[in-house]
Design a binder for these strands. Structure first.
Lengths: 210, 210, 210, 210
DNA sequence: CATGAATGAGCATTCATTCAT
DNA sequence: GATGAATGAATGCTCATTCAT
């Protein structure tokens, strides 16, 4: 039993260290990407946030881009199950939208909170333009789903391409806007986005005017 | 007599050359920004697209950022009049949206066509992510207008911040999507965006289902 | 008569302009050298102080070094007569030293005052290390003279090389020091330098101790 | 057993290499400074004298100025003890001067010999204008000392500022001159400088005339 | 594997100099 | 001769990447 918990001790130690180093790099990269933007981040910036040596980086990743993709993969892996179950259980477009927007806004909020917690010294950037690799990947995932869901309903006939684009656009911009408010209200953003997408600004207005 | 007119020409030639060089740099920058993203672009990338020498860049601009701003200014200068008249003449939110979306999609299309016409050597990227400084500037202009228009109607009561964000998001994503289709149909995109924003996906769907 | 005063009118105008431009460049160079140091001065710095165009510089000088030398020549030309007469009229070493030190300290002071008058925006440098080309040239002139004078007296037997070096060293350092005091007292410096060189610190001390 | 001692060696080698590179850069800088003057020297000039790569320079120094200061520090560190003991043990001004001039001329000679030994490819400049950072630093050290010594004696009453300047000037110029002679005679220069400073040219002359 | 120093290509920028007008 | 824009070599410096230990 004990042995089973620590498979092949000596190797286990090494394996753990290896995994830990990889994780450390990813974690550092996540933070630095959020802080400086993926574009402006250098490999040096990443390893500096680590207790590892410069050369070690290349034992795990071939370049900054590979880290970027690894983060994206991680994000997707974390998010795909939720999306899959949403897609399967959605009884209506509205139901799907509510769940999907909610999932996205929650995810966005988590990423953002984490960025705020860990450093993020450039106060001006807090809450603005959280465009991590994970997020982008999740985004594409949703786009695909949404296109499928749209296609499987009468609504898609209108123009599933544009409809998906619009849904995505709403998520993106309303999501960014949401992060600027305190407290961050993912629920409110979700309802807004869903209502707007389904019934337009008119519906929202009349709701508030009455 | 003709000879007497010459001096002006000598000066004219110089002036023309200067203006031409400035334009060449701006044009090159516009393309490279579109291709690589403004962030990733280096001054060298820009002048390389030109038949000018490295140092010449600095006869016209102090830095990459100055080029960026010059492009943004140019875009705004070209676009602001249209926006102003739209804003003033809009009799309803629908009218404003139709005009504004139309103006934005036209502008986007123009930029895109120009990019295609002038080189754009990396064919793969044509029509994708046209995020030039001009566009960003025009964008902010619209956002401001829209917020004002929204504020001055009952609709704003709902949540002018989110509403504006949504309208922008729709424009952004539907616009990018529009450029991927052939022929590019700005009119269709305009109507789609306006309808969706005002009445939601439901309205569009029923229209097609009936 | 009138014609004689303006030899060949058209040419005269041109000649005057030519000379004036050359002078303007030299004057500008003198100032900038004093302000920034000859080493750090660029051709651009010089012509910027002028109303001439960049290219014009090269109609008069091949390089910054040539300006430097022209200034040195000018300094020597201005100074050589005084030195010559001093050398010829010196009835004793003491007489020569008094006159030569006086001439050097006066020259130094003039240069310095001019530098202060014209700009010299780096206040910290005022009065410090005035090491213009003219000065260096004058310096070498003196060195030669002094060596000759020393050689022609019994004193030189000691070691005319070292003696000259010492006289020069005293002039240099005491001169710089002199410029730091207000008011600048060339007479005092001259007497000090002469006394020290001839009779040593002992003589000076006893004079004050008594 | 021997193998067990190896780990230290691995580290030792690295450490040695690092120190060696730092020394190589300093050494190269010393030479190039002497050859071209500190002002005119570029970082590239320094590393070119080395078998290191351009970027390596910045592993050791942030800029040329930092090298300059490191050299100055080194010179002072090497020289300060000698000066301190001289100052403390000086029973008279003469004693102080003898020791101080001797120390300075020896130092100058060492620096010069080193420059000759290590390359100094521009033969024409050997022995001329040795104005390294170390020397400048040592110089200031002496100036301070001398001023104090002067101040603590009756001699200072004359004019300690000028006296110090004169002593320094003598050291500078006689020192440069000394290096031009073969063999280099620091002892002779020391005696000359001390005698001249204390008793003037008259004393030296009479000594030789008799 | 980890380390971290060395590498050298690449970038922004400056500046002496040339040359068409 | 005067002009001033164009030139491109040179400089300080950064950074991804390699490699001996």
């Amino acid at each position: 039993m004990v042995a089973a918990a620590q498979p092949a001790q000596g190797q286990g130690k090494r394996a753990r260290t290896k995994a830990a180093n990889r994780q450390a790099i990813l974690e550092a990269a996540r933070q630095v990407f959020a802080r400086l933007g993926a574009e402006a981040t250098t490999v040096r910036d990443i390893i500096r946030e680590t207790d590892l040596a410069a050369g070690t980086f290349y034992n795990y990743f071939k370049s900054k881009e590979e880290v970027f993709e690894a983060l994206a993969d991680e994000g997707v892996r974390r998010f795909r199950p939720r999306l899959a179950s949403i897609r399967e259980n959605a009884s209506s477009l509205q139901a799907y939208l509510l769940e999907a927007y909610s999932a996205y806004f929650d995810f966005l909020n988590e990423e953002n909170e984490e960025a705020i917690r860990h450093g993020a010294p450039h106060a001006a950037m807090i809450g603005v333009r959280v465009d991590t690799p994970e997020m982008q990947a999740v985004f594409e995932e949703i786009r695909t789903d949404l296109e499928q869901v749209a296609k499987s309903t009468g609504l898609s006939l209108a123009d599933s391409g544009y409809l998906t684009a619009a849904a995505i656009g709403i998520a993106r911009e309303v999501g960014d806007h949401m992060l600027l408010r305190r407290p961050v209200d993912t629920r409110g953003a979700t309802e807004f986005a869903t209502q707007l997408f389904l019934h337009g600004a008119g519906a929202l207005a009349s709701k508030n005017n009455s």
